[in-house]
Design a protein around this nucleic acid. Sequence first.
DNA 1: CTAATAGGCAACCAGAAGGTTGCCTACATA
DNA 2: TATGTAGGCAACCTTCTGGTTGCCTATTAG
Lengths: 105, 105
Amino acid sequence: MARRRTPAPVFAALGDEHRLRLLARLSSGPLSISRLTAGSGMSRQGVTKHLRVLEGAGLVRGTRKGKESLWYLERRRLEEARRSLDLISQQWDQALGKLKRFVEG
Amino acid sequence: MARRRTPAPVFAALGDEHRLRLLARLSSGPLSISRLTAGSGMSRQGVTKHLRVLEGAGLVRGTRKGKESLWYLERRRLEEARRSLDLISQQWDQALGKLKRFVEG
DNA sequence: CTAATAGGCAACCAGAAGGTTGCCTACATA
DNA sequence: TATGTAGGCAACCTTCTGGTTGCCTATTAG
């Protein structure tokens, strides 16, 4: 039975403003690193590092195209993360239900 | 116009295995710190620190009850986070739609 | 061929995270 | 009242993060 991978790394990757903004920018299409760097208020290497974090979490994927490297969104992991949150949320609802029933006797 | 708070801190708080497990344990009812510590493979202070992180993100709330401090789940923020993910996911769908239309000309 | 552009790699650095331990206070109870 | 239990606070340590810079390679354009 394949133990489910924990969603923690994906959440960790999402837990940074810069990275959220990168993802937002990528959501209107693939972009190169220098494109992403422009207006990011950060050095190219800084952007690269964040992209690698996102890549490590499986949220984006980069391919070299000529002299530039293009970065795409990767959907699967985000879906997984979303499902995880839904699940957690569901558990919490149940918990609150139990508590409420208990309190109201 | 109240600018929306970024979901990054909540995601960051969720981005740790220990904290996810704490939340899971709390989802079956409020627990004290020593209860949470037992079987956590961590010192009491370690647990406390994680709880404070979760509290900082608004995901839990603790109140002192006699000699122990009880910790409860706080739903609002998780809902917000869930909505954020849904939103992002939606944006991505649109992006993929655009890309597809473009490719298929 | 040369110059300019895009990017990789490695070193470095400051500060934050994650964890521990030691010691003190507060409550509950024999 | 004396003792055990729950927890707070602060110091400390090590590792990870987020960012920089310098320099090298590869591709493209003149």
